[in-house]
Simulated scan of single mutants.
Amino acid sequence: MIDELCVIGHPSTLGGADTELDHQIRCWHEMGIEVHLCHTMPYDGNALAMQMEERGCIYHEPRDWESIQGMHCISFCNSQFLKGLKEIKRYARSTSFVNCMTWNFDDEVRGQKEGLIDFHLYQTKHAYDRVSLKLKDEGKYRPLFFTPFFYAEEFPYVSDRPQDKFRFGRISRDDPGKFSSQQLWIYETMTAPVDKQGLILGWSDNVESKFGRRPEPFIQVLPACSLSQRAFYAQCEAIIMSTDTFENLPRVGFEAMASGSILVVDDKGGWRSQVNDGITGWLCRDNREFIYKASRCAYEEQERNEMRHAARENLENQWGMQAAMDSWAQVFEAWERVDSRSATTPEINTSPVMVN
């Protein structure tokens, strides 16, 4: 197995791929791998606040591509990595791009056509099915799959919640596309044995314009990042989210499972990988199923408690350290069999494998 790798980019506190990268670095360190960081831009206060040097990472000057000579390089959804591929490729032993989305970057397609990306890494089969369409016929395409590590310790598990109200919520960036047009109708129509109290974290004027109104008074709306994620999940017995987007592997799902909040979500995309319907949460095929399952969640306290325990256990087993290390070990073995600077490279078995 490899003993070092270089990240092109840097983790941050901003969420998304930056947070996922942070969690994977924890996994790589646990595997005994030396992690180098070569950022695509100057190190700002947000990057330095991550204290990656104190955690054992080795810093390079930003965009000092010559300093990455001979190293396997990986980047998580970093557009500047894609733009700098020609220079990076001159020095890297191999280049890997992790597309966390379900659509292609233009420079990702260009990099594949020009033979600048040695490996494309995916977390889920459904994301691969979408993203691979524009890549698989363009030169030597090597898709690899990994099981991401989720660092659950950042989200304390809350099992003892007050039952005087049924408290629920949703959290996302303030993108109208993240909200189903029927989201407010679901909240207002579902029933509960006690008063309902909702919290939407990620509200904005653009979101409000999608609905043409604010929600009913029992639902509080807050701008994104105006409340900590820990505080949000501690308040919400259930996360009830209907979206217009097709998610790859939503971090909200991991955060909710870690925190003990019940997921009531769409029966599509990455939610299917995270939720075992009726056991670790609820999957909903349409708006009326959302109404039924959200209402059932509100009424059945014992079922909620069983679900939250099952979800937390599933998170530890399926997305914990050992599962992630095993999958990354296979990725690193594939890297070692390919030297991008060589005129010929051996074929490797990259048959897609479903992430369960």
Rank of each mutant, 00 (worst) to 15 (best):
Y187A: 08
G115S: 05
A294H: 05
R308F: 04
R272S: 11
M71D: 06
S75H: 08
V355H: 07
K293F: 02
G15D: 07
P223K: 15
F119P: 07
Q274G: 03
G45T: 01
D18C: 10
Q69D: 15
C225H: 15
D137I: 05
Q302N: 08
M52D: 13
K136A: 02
Y59L: 12
Y91Q: 13
L21K: 02
Y187K: 02
Y59T: 05
E66M: 01
D326I: 14
L116D: 06
I33A: 09
Y299E: 14
G281A: 12
P250L: 14
R288Q: 14
L184M: 00
R93C: 00
G260S: 11
G9Q: 02
G320T: 12
G84T: 01
I117V: 11
M241Q: 11
Y128W: 09
N305V: 05
P156T: 01
L85E: 05
W65E: 10
Y122S: 00
M325C: 13
G139R: 05
K165G: 09
C6F: 00
L199Y: 11
H10Q: 08
M241A: 13
D160K: 08
K165C: 12
A256E: 03
E303L: 07
V265C: 12
M354W: 08
E114H: 12
S342R: 08
T350A: 15
A298D: 02
E347H: 15
A192N: 04
E4D: 14
H39S: 03
F290D: 15
G111C: 03
D129I: 09
M71L: 11
P148T: 12
T345D: 03
F150E: 02
L222P: 01
R63T: 14
Q69N: 14
K196M: 06
L37A: 09
E114G: 04
S261I: 00
G32T: 11
P62N: 02
R90F: 04
E138F: 00
P346D: 06
D175E: 10
N356I: 14
N317M: 15
A323S: 08
W282D: 00
L5R: 06
R296L: 13
N314Y: 14
D277F: 06
M190E: 03
K178T: 07
V98I: 15
R341C: 02
N78C: 12
W65I: 12
A234F: 01
Q183S: 10
F179W: 15
S67W: 02
E301Y: 09
V35C: 10
A256D: 11
W185V: 10
E237L: 05
W282C: 07
S342I: 06
S204M: 12
A329G: 13
D64I: 10
E247F: 03
F290G: 02
F290A: 04
E54A: 12
T40A: 09
E153S: 14
D44A: 12
C73E: 04
C27R: 10
S340K: 03
P42N: 06
E108R: 06
Q220Y: 09
E20Q: 15
K125P: 00
R167A: 02
E247P: 04
P215K: 07
T245R: 15
D44C: 10
L14G: 00
N248E: 13
G278C: 00
A294C: 02
E255L: 10
Q197H: 11
W103K: 06
V338L: 06
E301P: 04
N356E: 15
E154W: 00
V265W: 09
